[in-house]
Design a protein around this nucleic acid. Structure first.
Lengths: 145, 145
DNA sequence: GCCCAAGTTGACGTTAACGTAAAGTGCAGC
DNA sequence: GCTGCACTTTACGTTAACGTCAACTTGGGC
């Protein structure tokens, strides 16, 4: 409701169009989660924000990670699964042959999961359409009598 | 591994191609869940199988309900949400005007949820594609040196 | 008659993902 | 210097969705 303009407008020459850093409260408001949640994700190692003194400072990259986690949740992934997925996008630099094979395996695994979800969604959409039709028919009957 | 042929082949004339009823163990094996899970769903009112004495007897309709629940889980729905959805498909016979409006509202709500999931999945698929490419490139480099 | 597999009802335990309350720190404005 | 707000840590509480015994009963096969 109030727009407190929390993004620090610096007095120096360069005005960053998108802020280079975020407070925990900013992220919480923007992503509609609680600060507790964000701190919890840090506790389990999903985020490792910088610190200025005690205060956490989040980079745009941290923000992206958070959004990835939330997208995972929307698809029903556990935090552990989201972590796996994010690790797929950010592979370590120590990729030997066997690790790469494992990565590819996981990627295929996740992909087939997504395929199944696509199927499920399509069927569900159809069923919703039918339910809506039954609903509309029932309303017609009421209106016509 | 073993095929104990649990479906009761009756000696009378009619041979039901798909059995009219299922035991709890059959369903558990077929759907790859535990009997505990099925009983739990009954505890919270998601299933109300018939009984022969003490023993639970599941109808094809019960089996469909169970599959709906499991599909819901694959999409990350809670059991409460799945229950809501199923109720959308099986509306009571006492549909007055306001209830119908509420139903339509819920249907639209679920639909937009599914839309969001579709978007999420599409983006995730792209990201998986990219991750796979990076993976394959890395393997190429190893192979070429 | 005995056994065994599959069923039953409790009851308590467990895990994930946070919620919530307590008690303190840091700083911007008056 | 005080207030207030946003941040911090610590710690215990909570809810959903089952898992895991334990202690039965029941029907079919030998």
């Amino acid at each position: 409701m109030k727009q407190p303009n929390r993004t620090p407008e610096r007095a120096d020459g360069r005005e960053p169009r998108e802020p280079r850093e975020y407070s925990i409260g900013e992220l919480a408001r923007e992503l509609d989660i609680t600060t507790r949640t964000i701190r919890f994700y840090e506790d389990i190692g999903l985020l490792t924000p910088a610190r200025r003194g005690q205060t956490r400072i989040y980079s745009p990259a941290d923000r992206v990670r958070l959004k990835l986690i939330l997208r995972g949740k929307r698809l029903g992934l556990s935090l552990a699964e989201s972590r796996e997925l994010i690790d797929l996008y950010n592979p370590g630099t120590d990729n030997n042959q066997t690790q790469l094979r494992a990565l590819l395996g996981k990627i295929h695994e996740k992909r087939s999961l997504l395929e199944q979800q696509l199927l499920d969604i399509r069927v569900m959409q159809q069923e919703l359409d039918e339910a809506e039709q039954r609903c509309l028919n029932a309303m017609q009957k009421i209106h016509n009598k």
